[in-house]
Amino acid sequence: MSDLTFPLADIHAVRTTNRAQLAIGAFLAILRRDLKVTGREFVPFLLQALMNPLFFLFIFGKVLPGMGLASGNYAELMLPGIVALTGMIAAMQGVTLPLVLDLGYAREIDDRLLSPLPVWWVALEKVIFGAMRGAVASSVIFPLGYLILGNGFAVRGDRIGTLIGMVILTGFVGSVIGLLMGTIIKPEHISLMFTLIFTPLLFTGCTYYPWGALQNIRWFQVLTLFNPLTYASEGLRYSMVPPVRGHDFPTLGLAWILLALCTSVLILFWVGRKTFYKRVVT
């Protein structure tokens, strides 16, 4: 007990001085940490992500059409919106809440900030991890939809590549929004965030209605174009809604969708990276 072993030599002998190797190793270890923690909390994570879509699918996909209050194919049009929304929210929550708490007072992130990697890579890791969370949550909607909607579940199978790309992009959009919010919002304003940011985001994101159907409310249709969730929903509609009598369901153009989603991710990450840096380095 009197002599604390301090194996300087052991570790110094194997330690690399290659900065890139160090940084990549640290990055992967931090990602592994997040995956481990989420893996341990996988059931609560699924419950958190799926409770809302579960009821939505049931009421809007099953109950209302059954009462004749929604047309038969409403479920087909809504399902992509639910996939987009669920992925986006799951990604945001995975990034925003931990960041607000960490930067506010817990400072648990300090150990990662002191790891041998550039500070902004810690933000990048958060974004990638958030996107993974989002993609997993989105994916689980498919079996859930199949279970709830039964015969009403219809997804075209010929655009599976685009579908996968859209699910991933949606996760990234959610996590970069999460990064920005997590670095701006103070812990005491968390509850405000849900009303001021989530609610408008949710209802202007073309999740419950296709964009094209808004043509009679032109100003609102234009407004929705400023919400990245609109492009995610439309992109998923493009890759999921089955054609009717050989006609594809009309959505925003795929090129526009991709352009808007990629631009959103890049711009929001660029800003979020700056706000993150400001919070952790003075």
Binding site: I11, V14, R15, T16, Q21, L22, G25, A26, A29, I30, R32, R33, K36, V37, A106, R107, E108, D110, D111, R112, L114, S115, P116
Partner: peptide, 29 residues
Amino acid sequence: IAVVPQQSNLDRSLKVREILTFHAAYHGV
């Protein structure tokens, strides 16, 4: 370097032993 701050900033999502092993993993041990 290593820093021991005044107030605990230990990772509360990890178990005690993992706090140590992950820290070392971040540093490429």
